[in-house]
């Protein structure tokens, strides 16, 4: 369905005076640095990482808003042109996007109906009347009253705006929907209903969902497979159930330890990472996580790129530490609570 191969997105930086004098090129910001991913049809692929890890850039490269530097992105076996302007309307129809901030996702000067009508007219070549009927159905599908078509975004709440944005994304029956932090701007009670709406619509439309979030609990609730990103590189790829059992990548382990648990007396290992996320201009050698890794082995981590190790349950970990060793060290510190219970208690 979706294949991302060796995808890199670099952003140019301005050259300093010293670099100009020496005739050097400015080092680029490596927002996405050689990512390989696959998502099967109707599957939900979750992408987790802290802010600045390149998750959004990855999504924008797929949708065409950020131009890729290297690599290939294939949808249904067809290679996607890097530039949005080079993509045919049939392709645009198959790929849709839900933005992070519902406040900015809708044009404040257009009514909900005018906004929702557009994809039908531009991409599906409906007539105006057909489009208006379709808008009514669409609003009902996202549980909004059909009268909302006459409203302006300023007359909607944040959650309602995000429902409209989701409706717009589903208008053309996309094969792949990318939801970039689709719930992080909403308050917790609204988050759950938006997540449920996304997964219900996905069920009806049989689309693949690429769900991006910094919140491992939210991703664990929705995703079939989860990819963990750190400074533009993958650290671990695992089926959702497998991700929450050892062995973990040391970075995933740290992320897991930060999920708040619903049971206050559950034993949870607190891992506090030292230092800051490294600069993406001047990334650490070897394993990019080595300067902060609580399970730092030694010089090998700083010198050599780690291997991809595959566990029996299918999870893949980008680490020098043997999986058996990771399992042994991590077995006793596990928050055995699955994150599903964490979300359902909302």
């Amino acid at each position: 369905m979706l294949q991302v191969a060796d995808l890199s997105v670099y952003f140019a930086t301005r050259r300093s005076l010293a670099q100009m004098a020496r005739g050097q090129a400015a080092p680029p910001v490596k927002a996405v640095d050689g990512i390989n991913l696959e998502a099967a049809r109707q599957q939900t692929l979750g992408i987790v990482g802290e802010s600045g890890s390149g998750k959004t850039t990855l999504a924008r490269a797929i949708i065409g808003l950020a131009e890729r530097t290297a690599g290939d992105i294939r949808l249904l076996g067809l290679s996607l042109p890097p530039k949005l302007s080079r993509r045919h309307k049939d392709l645009l129809q198959q790929l849709q996007y839900v933005f992070q901030n519902p406040e900015e996702a809708l044009n404040p000067y257009l009514t909900v109906g005018e906004t929702l009508r557009r994809p039908f007219i531009t991409l599906a070549q409906h007539t105006r009347a057909e489009a208006d009927t379709a808008v009514q159905q669409l609003l009902t599908a996202v549980r909004l009253p059909a009268t909302y078509a006459q409203r302006l975004p300023s007359q909607l709440s944040g959650g309602e705006k995000q429902r409209v944005a989701i409706a717009r994304a589903f208008a053309t029956h996309p094969d792949l929907l990318i939801a970039d932090e689709a719930v992080s701007a909403l308050d917790v009670s609204v988050q759950a209903s938006i997540l449920n709406l996304l997964s219900e619509l996905q069920h009806e439309h049989h689309n693949t969902l690429l769900f991006i979030s910094h919140d491992l609990a939210v991703v664990g609730y929705l995703a079939d497979e989860i990819a963990v990103v750190y400074v533009g590189q993958l650290m671990e790829v695992a089926a959702a159930a497998a991700l929450f059992a050892p062995p973990y990548h040391p970075y995933t382990e740290a992320l897991l330890s930060s999920i708040p648990l619903a049971t206050p007396d559950a034993a949870q290992q607190q891992i506090r990472l030292q230092g800051d996320v490294p600069s993406q201009i001047n990334k650490p050698s070897g394993c990019p996580f080595h300067p902060r890794c609580p399970r730092y082995l030694g010089e090998i981590c700083a010198r050599e790129t780690p291997p991809w190790q595959t566990h029996a349950n299918g999870k893949r970990i980008f680490c020098h530490i043997p999986l058996s060793e990771l399992t042994r060290q991590q077995a006793q510190l596990i928050p055995l609570e699955t994150p599903e219970t964490g979300v359902n208690t909302l």
Partner: peptide, 26 residues
Amino acid sequence: TKAFVEAARIQGESLWRILFREILPS
């Protein structure tokens, strides 16, 4: 750079429409 303009680009809107219908009202 606002999301609603990017949304219009993703939806394959024409340049004319993006300039005069999405951006101009602001």
